[in-house]
Amino acid sequence: MGVSFDSLKHLLCNVSVLRKPWREINWRDKQSDLQSVKDYRPQTDGQLLRILLHGPVGAGKSSFINSVQSILHGRMYAQALADNTSHDLVVVTFYPFVFNDIMGLSPTGVQVDDVKLALKGHVKDDYRFNRDSRLSEDDPFYNNHPTDNDKVHVLVCVIDANTVTFMQQEVEEKIRQIRIEATHLSIPQVAILTKIDEACPEIKEDLQNVYKVNYLKEKMEEFSVNVGIPMNCIFPVKNYHEEINLNSDVDSLILSALKHIINFGDDCINFHKSQSRAMSCQNYNL
């Protein structure tokens, strides 16, 4: 008698639960992480930290943004965001953060060149992506003179943990190309692994098993190898989906990821500021 995929997954999770987590999370004190996020301010007045989310269709980009907003508001929050078929560059701003959510990557989806333009700040908010042609410089949504606030400071790839092994090769290649461009621009990259409760019954039973399950660690390692994002920049989370009340464990994982995203973004802002000052001094000396 054959064994179903779900049964095999359950077996793998059951036989490889570690006694101690391989990564530590402070489950009992989410309040300090929450306060750290709320207190964050860039060193320069008026500076915004821009976070660009991309990833395959249905990975949970919009749900992640809504989950972050729910935690920061202290209640369930469901701002209308783009659905999986939308072509718009959606912007959500709160505190000094700007989240941009673009249409899902697919073999026939958003063009890599348009994402590269967005990284550089050349794409204005609410631009409607075109699958057949890239944004041209004479388009009214093309930003000819991007400011520091228009440019991306952290690139976040959102991936469904259940699809890592079965990701389409074309989508994987798009993620790699976008990551290479971000590296060239000195933009840090983070990956968010979503739907972890669906990936393994042990995690669904107790979210605090997230760093004790070898099955999930192997998925993270596989994704790291495939697209080149280091393990210490990959964060598994569970987005809010069916819940009507906040959950401390869900919050802890999302806040852990968000805190690192903010730290990486702040490093990016400060790096580019220092580069600009050095260039200004060099030009002055000339």
Results as ranks from 00 to 15, higher is better:
Gln168His: 11
Gln168Met: 12
Ile269Pro: 02
Asn245Asp: 15
Asn239Phe: 06
Asp83His: 10
Val164Ile: 13
Pro107Asn: 02
Lys151Ala: 14
Asp266Ser: 11
Ser252Arg: 15
Phe166Lys: 15
Met220Thr: 06
Leu193Ile: 15
Asp266His: 05
Ile25Leu: 12
Pro201Lys: 01
Lys238Pro: 01
Thr183Cys: 14
Gly265Gln: 02
Asn143Ser: 08
Thr85Glu: 10
Arg179Lys: 14
Ala118Pro: 05
Pro21Gln: 02
Phe166Asn: 13
Leu207Gln: 02
Leu89Asn: 04
Glu205Phe: 06
Ser16Asp: 15
Pro188Val: 01
Thr93His: 08
Asp45Val: 06
Cys281Gln: 14
Glu173Phe: 01
Gly228Pro: 04
Leu246Glu: 09
Ser7Ile: 00
Gly104Pro: 09
Val164Trp: 04
Pro56Lys: 15
Arg50Asp: 09
Gly60Glu: 09
Gln69Val: 13
Gln169Met: 06
Pro96Asn: 08
Glu222Arg: 09
Val3Met: 07
Pro140Val: 04
Thr93Ile: 03
Gly60Met: 12
Gln177Ala: 13
Phe5Val: 13
Leu52Asn: 06
Leu258Gly: 08
Ser67Lys: 11
Leu81Trp: 05
Asp126Pro: 00
Ser32His: 07
Tyr40Phe: 15
Val57Glu: 08
Leu12Ala: 11
Asn149Met: 04
Asp6Ala: 13
Asp132Pro: 00
Ala182Phe: 00
Arg176Phe: 03
Lys20Val: 12
Asp125Gln: 11
Pro107Gly: 06
Arg128Ala: 14
Leu49Ser: 00
Lys273Leu: 10
Gly46Tyr: 01
Asp6Lys: 13
Asn144Lys: 15
Val210His: 05
Ile196Asp: 10
Lys204Tyr: 07
Ser36Pro: 01
Gln275Gly: 02
His260Tyr: 10
Val98Ser: 07
Ile71Met: 12
Val90Met: 05
Lys174Ala: 03
Asp132His: 15
Pro230Arg: 06
Gln111Cys: 09
Asn270Arg: 14
Leu105Thr: 04
Leu155Tyr: 02
Ile234Ala: 03
Glu24Ala: 14
Val123Met: 01
Gly2Asp: 13
Ser136Gly: 09
Tyr40Pro: 07
Asn283Leu: 14
Val250Ala: 06
Glu205Val: 02
Asp148Val: 03
Lys212Asn: 05
Asn149Cys: 00
Ile175Glu: 02
Cys13Thr: 07
Arg50Glu: 07
Asn285Pro: 00
Val164Gly: 00
Arg23Thr: 12
Ile187His: 03
Pro21Ile: 05
Val152Glu: 07
Ile159Lys: 09
Ile254Lys: 11
Phe64Thr: 14
Ser32Ala: 11
Val152Ala: 10
Ile102Asn: 08
Arg128Asp: 09
Lys61Ile: 11
Ser106Glu: 13
Ser67Asp: 12
Val92Ser: 15
Glu243Gln: 12
Phe64Met: 10
Asp251Ile: 05
Arg179Val: 09
Gln69His: 12
Ser16Asn: 15
Gly228Met: 05
Pro201Asp: 02
Gln169Trp: 01
His54Leu: 14
Val91Trp: 00
Asp114Lys: 07
Ala278Trp: 01
Lys124Tyr: 04
Asp113Met: 03
Pro42Ser: 04
Thr163Val: 12
Phe129Ile: 03
Asn66Gly: 14
